[in-house]
Nucleic acid binder design. Structure first.
Lengths: 237, 237
DNA sequence: CGCGAAGGTGTACGACGTACACCTCGCCGC
DNA sequence: GCGGCGAGGTGTACGTCGTACACCTTCGCG
C-alpha cells in the first residue's frame, strides 16, 4: 500500500544523520559510533549514509562541526579579556555536555569553516583589544586546545572502568611503592586535596585547573601586550 | 632438519616486539601498526604477539613507554626553570623523531610508571625550586601536553596529502572568500610570515610557537611563585 | 505521462582484533 | 638418557568494521 505507511520515516538528510550521530555518541560513547550502528538507529541500511556523508572521517568532522556551531558567542562590547574568557568557557560547557568531543576534536585533521569561524572570533577579540596580529597569533598557539574548552588530562583519565579494585593490603603496598618511586607526584597530588591523602585517587578539580591555566595565559598575554611586545624583527631590508 | 636452520630467528620477547612496533610506526605511520602487519615484520604469526603483549592497547602503551624512556634527563644543579625547559625540550626532540607519538600519547588512557617518572621528574624540578606543591600542581596542568614536547596544532595538520590542488583561478576566488569570512585568521596568519601573503599556506614556525607558549607559562609561573601565590584557602577549621 | 536524478538497498570484499585449541621445543629433576 | 612440563609459536575461526558496486524506488518536473 504505497502512500499509506503511516509511520513512514521521513527522508534522511545530512543534518539528521549528524544529529543522530551526536546523540549516539552522547549516549554510548564515540567508540559506539560506527556506520552500521548509526544506520540502525536511523532505521536504514548502512550504505544509505554514504549518500549524505562521504565517509566516516567526514561524519566525524560533521559531528564536531555540529557541536562547535552551538558555542555561544560572547556578548558584544566586552573587554578583550572577558570576551575571550566567555567564549572559551562557552566552548568548555559544550565539551562538558559532549565528552566525546574532546577526543574527536583532537583527532580531526581538517579545519572546517565552522572551526575556522570559532578561531576567527577568538582572534578578533584579541585584535579588537589592540593586540598586534603577531602577538595574537602566538597567544592563540599558547592557548592551544584550551580554545576548545579542554586541556589535556595529565593524570587520571580512567576509562569506562578502572582495571580492578586491588585488595586493601596490596593497595597499601602499592601506595608505599608509589610514594617511594614518585615522591613529587605524591606531593602535588596530595596538595590538590588539601592534604587529604585518602582523597588523592579522585583526581583534581578540573574546572579550577582549566581556569587557572587560562588565566595564567591570558595574564601573560596582557603583560606582553602592555609591554609593547613584538617578535624579534627579521633581518632589516 | 632440526637444529640446522642457520638463519633461525631468535625468540621473541616484549622488548623486540615493542622496538619493532616503534620502527614500523616510524616508517609507515601509526595507522600501519596492526597486529598482523607487525607480526609479519617479525616473521611470525599474528597470535604469537599475544604471548608478549596482552592486547593492542598494551602494545601502544608499550610503544609510548619505549620512546618516553629515551627522554634525556636535564643536567643536575640547574635553576628550576632551566631544568624544566631542558627536560621539556628533550621530550620535544623525542616527539619530532617519532611523529606518531603525539597522537599515541594523546590517545593513551593509562599512566605507566615510565610516564609517571617523567611527570615526577618535572614536578621535582619545580619543588626543588621552592614552589609549593599546590602551585606546582596547577602549573603542571597549565603546561598540559607541552610536558610531552608538543602543543596542539591549531591550524594546519594536513594529512599525508592535501585533498587536491585547486586550479589557480578558483584558488583566487577561495582566497577572497576566506578573507571575507575569516578576516582575523587571515591577519594573524599573515603576521606569522612577516606579511608575505603567498607564504601563508605553509603554516608557522612550530618550534617558535612551542617555545613562546612554554616561556609564557614558565614566566607566569615564576611571577606567581615570587609573589608568594597560594590557592584560596578552604574554609578554616 | 515519462524521465532523470536523488535516495535507499543488497551483496560482497578485505581489513582488523583476538578467542581457543593445538603443537613443539628446551630445560629440569630423576 | 628420559619423561614431562611450561613457555613460546601456530592454525583456524568468528564477529566487527568501512565501503565499493550494481541495483531498485521514489519524487519532482517538463
Amino acid at each position: 500500500m504505497p502512500g499509506f505507511d503511516v509511520g513512514a520515516r521521513e527522508r534522511l538528510n545530512r543534518e539528521r544523520v549528524l544529529r543522530a550521530a551526536v546523540s549516539l555518541a552522547d549516549e554510548a560513547g564515540i567508540a559506539a559510533v560506527s556506520m552500521r550502528r548509526l544506520a540502525q538507529d536511523l532505521g536504514v541500511v548502512p550504505m544509505a549514509l554514504y549518500k549524505h556523508v562521504a565517509d566516516k572521517e567526514e561524519l566525524l568532522d560533521g559531528m564536531v562541526d555540529t557541536v562547535i556551531a552551538g558555542i555561544a558567542p560572547p556578548e558584544p562590547g566586552l573587554h578583550w579579556k572577558s570576551a575571550v574568557r566567555q567564549r572559551v568557557l562557552a566552548a568548555r560547557r559544550m565539551v562538558l555536555r559532549h565528552p566525546w568531543a574532546r577526543q574527536a576534536i583532537e583527532s580531526r585533521t581538517s579545519r572546517t569553516p565552522t572551526v575556522l569561524a570559532h578561531l576567527d572570533s577568538l582572534a578578533g577579540a584579541f585584535l579588537a583589544g589592540g593586540f598586534s596580529a603577531d602577538l595574537t597569533h602566538h597567544v592563540m598557539h599558547a592557548l592551544g586546545n584550551r580554545v576548545w574548552g579542554f586541556s589535556p588530562e595529565l593524570f587520571n583519565a580512567p576509562g569506562p572502568a578502572a582495571p580492578r579494585p586491588p585488595a586493601p593490603d596490596e593497595q597499601e603496598a602499592t601506595a608505599r611503592e608509589f610514594a617511594r618511586r614518585f615522591p613529587h607526584i605524591l606531593a602535588i597530588a596530595t596538595a590538590a586535596t588539601g592534604g587529604d591523602l585518602a582523597a588523592v585517587g579522585q583526581g583534581c578539580d578540573e574546572q579550577f585547573e582549566f581556569e587557572f591555566a587560562l588565566d595564567l595565559l591570558l595574564d601573560g598575554a596582557e603583560r606582553l601586550h602592555r609591554a609593547g611586545w613584538r617578535s624579534a624583527a627579521p633581518a632589516v631590508p
